[in-house]
Every structure is written in structure tokens, then in C-alpha cells.
């Protein structure tokens, strides 16, 4: 079963092609990582897939349904949610209320029990009644992830969930994502190569808005163009 199929996706800003004719396919339950240097168009890709930006050309098919022209909130209701690279939570309400809001957004119902379940899933059960603004950075990142999870989305677009984290916190996210694997389909944009190669079923490399390689982690690790353009000596051997 194909969860997401993207064909010929294109977006330019002024004269710059940020996303250039990108094709992508995610099978149900797959964890698909998108890597590439800064400015490669990874975040723009997430904006396009989530509906924050409108594509200039191309199609986005979610679970057999063309969502290319649908507004962001309609895509969420069809089961596609995203997280943000820069944490975007609601600081003035409690952690639990944050998640309840996400549950309400996708389902239309204010269901605290479900929110509490999602809270446990991201390991914030002990902080349920604290204001989201009072959380530490790592906890805020997990809440950010929790907001996307709590929508109940079957397809998650995660934009650098480990950004700015120490090794301990990053390891928690890796555990969290491993637990999610197979239960949800995930498109993961991430700079932490250890995590990417540990988690991903397949990896797509984006350079200057174009897909230069796509395949299993082993293929990508050996791919000469990827090594030259991006991985360099960073690639875990």
C-alpha cells in the first residue's frame, strides 16, 4: 500500500527553484528520511506536503486521494500532520491542554483521555499540568512531536525533531521514533546522520531542490554523488 505519492513537485521563490521536480513514494508503515545540505529544500518540501505552501506544479496523493489543492487543515483531517523545526507550541496553556487541542483539531472533540494517552507516548506524563512555556528545550521538542502525533495522523512529516538537542535527549527521540515505526508512516527530515541511518527504511537525498539519490540506507551510504555533495567524511562507516 502506498501512503504518499508525490510526482513532479515544484516550487520557486522569485527566480530560485527551491523544490525542483521531486518524485517521492512512501509505503504504508515506512520510515523515510530526507537528507541534504542546508538550503536543499527539505523544509520547503514539508511546507508543500503539509499545505503551508501551494505547489507551482506537481501532484500530492495521500492514500489514493489527490490533496494537492487542499488547505492545510483538510489534509490534517485526512491523516497528514507535521511538526516544526522551530518549536511551535502554545506556551500559555498546560501540556495536556496543548495535546487536547491537537486531538480536538483533528477529531472535532475535546477528548482529554486520548490527550493523556498521547502525553504518555511522548514521555511527558509527569508534566501534564505544567504550562507548556515552562518546559525545558528537550521537553518542548517532544511536545512539538506530540502535537503532530495527537492529531492521530497516519502520515507524519517531522522537520528536524532533534534540532538543538544534546545526545541524551536525541537518544530519547530515537527511541520514541523506533516505537512509532510500523504504526505510522513517517517522513523524517533530520541532520543527525546516526539517527537517520539507524531509523530509516529508505533515504532520499535532496541537493538544490532536486533528488540526487533515493534508496536503502546502504545504497545511499555508498552512493558516490551523495558522498561528494553531502555526506563527506561524516558518513558513518
Amino acid at each position: 500500500m502506498t501512503m504518499l505519492r508525490v510526482g513532479g513537485l515544484q516550487k520557486h521563490f522569485g527566480g530560485v527553484l527551491a523544490v525542483d521536480d521531486v518524485d517521492l513514494e512512501l509505503a504504508e508503515g515506512e520510515l523515510h528520511a530526507v537528507i541534504g545540505p542546508n538550503g536543499a529544500g527539505k523544509t520547503t518540501l514539508i511546507h508543500l506536503l503539509s499545505g503551508a505552501l501551494k505547489a507551482d506544479a506537481g501532484v500530492i496523493v495521500l492514500d489514493g486521494r489527490d490533496v494537492t489543492r487542499l488547505a492545510m487543515h483538510r489534509r490534517v483531517r485526512l491523516g497528514l500532520a507535521r511538526s516544526y523545526q522551530i518549536t511551535s507550541v502554545f506556551p500559555n496553556i498546560t501540556v495536556l491542554e496543548n495535546l487536547a487541542l491537537a486531538v480536538q483539531g483533528a477529531s472535532g472533540r475535546d477528548d482529554r483521555d486520548r490527550a493523556r494517552t498521547e502525553l504518555g507516548a511522548v514521555g511527558l506524563g509527569a508534566r501534564a499540568d505544567d504550562l507548556a512555556g515552562a518546559l525545558a528545550h528537550g521537553e518542548r521538542r517532544r511536545l512539538e512531536l506530540g502535537l503532530a502525533l495527537a492529531t492521530g495522523a497516519r502520515l507524519l512529516l517531522l522537520d528536524e525533531p532533534m534540532a538543538g538537542m544534546g545526545p541524551e535527549e536525541a537518544a530519547r527521540i530515537v527511541d520514541l521514533l523506533s516505537a512509532l515505526k510500523r504504526k505510522r508512516t513517517i517522513l523524517l527530515v533530520e541532520h543527525d546522520m546516526d539517527a537517520v541511518f539507524r531509523l530509516a527504511d529508505r533515504i532520499t537525498t535532496l541537493v538544490d531542490g532536486r533528488v540526487i539519490a533515493s534508496g536503502a540506507p546502504e545504497e545511499i551510504r555508498r552512493h558516490p554523488e551523495v558522498r561528494r555533495a553531502y555526506l563527506g567524511e561524516e558518513a558513518p562507516q
Binding site: 500532520a81 475535546d110 502535537l147 492529531t151
Partner: peptide, 21 residues
């Protein structure tokens, strides 16, 4: 729930769209 949603929009409209509102 409508009131909570309204205040969520006041605080962060883009994020509210991104969770389905």
C-alpha cells in the same frame, strides 16, 4: 471547545491550522 479553539488561534494561528482547525 469553540472558545478554546478561538484562543488557540489568537496565540498561534498557523499551528492551529497544522493541527486541523
Amino acid at each position: 471547545p469553540l472558545g478554546r479553539a478561538l484562543q488557540g488561534i489568537r496565540d498561534n494561528e498557523t499551528r492551529m491550522e497544522a493541527i486541523g482547525f
